[in-house]
Amino acid sequence: MNRIKNKLSENKKILSIYFTAGYPKLDDTVEILQQLEKDGVDMVEIGLPFSDPLADGPTIQQSSQAALKNGMTTELLFQQLKDIRETVSIPLIIMGYFNPMLQFGVENFCKKCAEVGIDGLILPDLPLAEYEEHYEEIFKKYNLINIFLITPQTSEERIRQIDNASEGFIYMVSSASVTGSSEGFGAEQEEYFKRIASMKLSNPLIVGFGINNSETFLQSTKSAKGAIIGSAFIKMLSEKGLGGISTFIKSIR
């Protein structure tokens, strides 16, 4: 069984961390993953950097640019992850934009994912219809779960459609915003979280975007299965380096 589904079947809230591969230093990827597992993180999104990350705010734009400048490539990421399953057992997801995957070759990319032990993919700019028409078969062949996003503006009809197409979980974007906003969650989010929870979807929900401390983590996991922290983790890495990981994770829960 896929590690993502296994993890989601556990009776606990999920803490997931996003970081950009190749940042702060080119070779940090494996050490960051090992440390996150040691600190009790449940799942990780490994960001494959892209030159033009449309859905990302300044923090992830900068970490992506820095990672590319450091020399990160798709090929290199797979090399770095070659032996990752010898030391890391939590679910690993690659999150990236579709163009680098397209250039690598979608099938080739999926094959490499399977080889190194990646469990799923999040590709914000690969729309549902394109995925179903052209790529679903390939993803399935390599046992990769494709994760879709919903937002506060997604219609009920479309949410049902995405729920039907999803396996694993649905990535619930917390607010109408690119990544990295840190304004906290108010009544609007609370209402949104409740509204989605009351839809009784067949997939669990994991909230992302704008989660930056224990308060927003708790707020978003009240009704959702888990939450993803990205920009706040990357900011911490920029300031404190890998040595700051444990303290950061402990401050969340």
Binding site: F50, S51, D52, L68, T74, N99, P100, L102, Q103, D125
Partner: peptide
């Protein structure tokens, strides 16, 4: 062939798919 600003089109990019 690549993707820029939501469209699949001809695109100047590196072999790695960076624009």
């Amino acid at each position: 062939v690549g993707i820029i600003h939501g469209s699949k089109t001809l695109l100047m990019q590196t072999a790695d798919g960076q624009i």
